[in-house]
Design a protein around this nucleic acid. Sequence first.
RNA 1: GCCGACUUAGCUCAGUGGUAGAGCGCUCGCUUCACACGCGAUAGGUCACAAGUUCAAAUCUUGUAGUCGGCACCA
Length: 937
Amino acid sequence: MEIAKAYNPKEAEESHYQKWEERGYFAPEINENADAMKYSIVIPPPNVTGSLHMGHALQHTLMDALVRRKRMQGFKTLWLPGTDHASISVQRKIVEQLREEGKTPQTVGREEFLRRAWAWKELYGNTITEQMRREGASVDWSRHRFTMDESLSCAVIEVFCRLYEEGWIYRGKRIVNWCPVDKTVISDVEVKDETRKDGKLVYLQYPVKDSDKKITVATTRPETMLGDTAVAVNPSDERYKDLIGKTILLPLTNREIPIVADEYVDAEFGTGAVKITPAHDPNDYELGLRHNLEQLVIMNDDATMNANAGADFEGLDRFKAREKVIEQFEELGLLEKIEDYEISLPTCERCKNIIEPLLSEQWFCNMDEMREMALDLMRREGVPHFYPQIPNEKVYTAWLENLKDWTISRQLWWGHQIPAWYDRAGNVFVARSFEDAKAAAQNAELTQDNDVLDTWFSSALWAFSTFGWNGEVTETQDLNAFSPTDVLVTGRDIIFLWVSRMIMTTQKFVGKKAFEDVVITGTVLGKDGKPMSKSRKNGVDPLDMFDKFGVDATRIYLASIATGADIRWNDTLIETYRNFANKIWNATRFCLMNSDGAQVDYTYLNPKAEVAEIKRLIGDELIDDFDEEDEEFLDKVEPEFAKDNPKENLSIADRWIISRLNKTALDVNRALDRYEFHTAVSRLYHFFWDDFCDWYIELVKDEITSETVNTKRDAARSRILTILEQALRLLHPFMPYLTEELWQKLPNISNELHNAAYSSAEQTIMLADFPAGDAGLIDERAEAEMQAVIDVISKVRNIRAEMQIKPSDKPTIHIAAAPNAQRIFAQNEAQILKLARAESLVLSEKSDVPKASAKAVTTLAEIALPLEGLIDFEKEISRLENQLNKLETEQQRLNGQLSNANFVDRAPAEKVQEIRDRVAEIETQVTALRQNLEALK
RNA sequence: GCCGACUUAGCUCAGUGGUAGAGCGCUCGCUUCACACGCGAUAGGUCACAAGUUCAAAUCUUGUAGUCGGCACCA
């Protein structure tokens, strides 16, 4: 078989996804087992305006790994994809489009605006879904949902109406967060405080009427003084006591405003006197209500001043107005001072512009009932389980406990229009349809509320609206089959915006938990350690990474990040995994180049079958003496048995790699069960590279590449192929393309390797059974023996490197060891000679070699390489001293512990014994090294 | 102001009580018939600092410093 020398990701990425999708592997219906357990995840719906960024790539990688493993394990698996309609983003695009044509939303009207929005969504809305195909995301496209789909929209209407009818949703006039650029209100969670060191605190003097006194107030927003309707002081503040009840002549305006007393004012802070602007500040608003103050709105929706600000200011932008107010105060001699002041500015999370607190009539949702449901779920069942639990669970519950009403209306057109109608008198009729509203209004003439709902209002229903719940239909097959979902994988930034709200609404409307577990990923930071952003230009486009390193390398790199930890983007790390992909490719290439006469066949890998076969062969007369645990006995019968059964003849190396493989499989499964993706990746990386490539392939290489055709060689070829096949399956959830590409090339692959739930599907690694790992195949004896062999080879290599022995020089290796250790080395003589590049192996119980030898010790062996003429005695002495030093340091430390009576008395006996054993080992080695050194000196 | 996280090799990061780890980089040697995106061998760390608990602390407790995050406040 011709196979390229290096892995070319593009080739593999082109062909497989389409097949997987067309053949329905992503849909839960592929599962043929009627009793299969379900496994479901809903995707955090990306913005329909968006394109894939690193955060998506990370989250999708983790979700896909979870889903692919569960699918391979035979679960009826659904990963449901979708997009949300992103009110503000789309609105902004269409406004921009209109502006280029010299039009505005108002001139074209709502209908035309929405027509354009839908057209835009049709044209560009698939960008991200196409990119997800590139990622290899195994989502069920047949269940793709969009938040403005008809059924999901019905769900929104139903939920709004129910909450209204129950009194949770109401309309009212409040101070809200107004974004003057997007010209809409946004909710508290969409406001981001930005600390600015260059703020100014401006001290303004207000003259008191019928007095020559002035009151000084301080403000960071001087322009709002145009909307002041009072000055407040603390009632017990001696400085101002006599002024309470008097009147201020508000400069720059013709207005007179009262001086009021209120406990809210902190006499210690600033001047102790506060200007009150009820229509432009939440605290002032509350205070204004208490004192019955006028609420004077002085700004337009674009944050320019309106007529209430006075003719001098009308039309001016808020910041221009600020300058002008300061100038005029200065001219009037009423500007006391300006101080530098660190302030935190509320900014719009999306457009970064400064939010203006503004008095406005909006729809709100009181969350008290739903909040209690969510808190209750956490208190009683600990659901959802956050991964990592710290600090996410605490952040989540603390936020819920302090939850305020949610501003749900938006002054936008793209989205779910609020199902509220008004008659001419301004009476409101909330209803599921215009007809219902009209009936309720007794056929009065009605106009619908202009606003739409917050996009997050519909996203909040995602955990059940996606399964068909729409208010009218409240039970569907999918809802029963897949809800609650098993896990939600998302970013820290939307715990409040989305996760918590989804938990609350699902609890209230379906009476279920939305999901059991929540995995909170960290943030992928730019190379500068800051969050990636367009303005910083530190972003890394996942698609560029796919092109440069391949999808699989990018995926497994992302999965290698510790769960929940932030990671600084680093090209050299992704290169590691590109190299890893190439390593897998080449290991497979090697196996395939030597695969004549071989096939993937699990009967080659089962030492248990071997034992059973031995039992059968040795017959009845010996069966009574047979003991599986009796290693001596096995040693005796194995060679006999193997003579006739090359298929069942497992070497120590075979037993070792089988043991390592099964440990790996167990570890990978355990790690993924705990969402420790990085642990799983690390185990796979080191198993494949270190155990399989560096050792196993090298150990069996001679046998496999032998040109002598015989059953023994073919058995060895089959074994390595079978190990490889198992490794590919373990890697598949992280590296879907590479593993499918290679798996399909293996000989004797068929759907018989599938999990039982997929026996009719065409052969694909996607549906192969995921290795669970078999603790019974862990062979500690083989691992210890193999380790002894590896130690010897490593020590010899070390001597060779230090003594600068040419690769072509092949010394003789002398090993002094106990008889049973000698047996191990004898059994692996060929491998030791090859990997240590030696001519011959001499085994003995006692060391007896020429003085001109380089030496080393391992746990089980004393090694000597006679190097007549090659040895540099000085170098050898320092080499041995180096070894000795290390051992003696350890010896000292351990002896220190053992001589501590407290340790021996109080530490677990097991631990003490462990250390005693280790000391004994060290002593043997130290003695040998000392003797060697003596001999040299 | 409150709460929390982090500080480990030159760099980026794993590691929740018992011999300090990985990848990259550095040094040395290899065109060894899968792979130079490779192979082999080294070097490199008072685990931020201080005190405490413990037979034993990178790991638990407290404090200090620095970095970052969330919330509150923001006249």
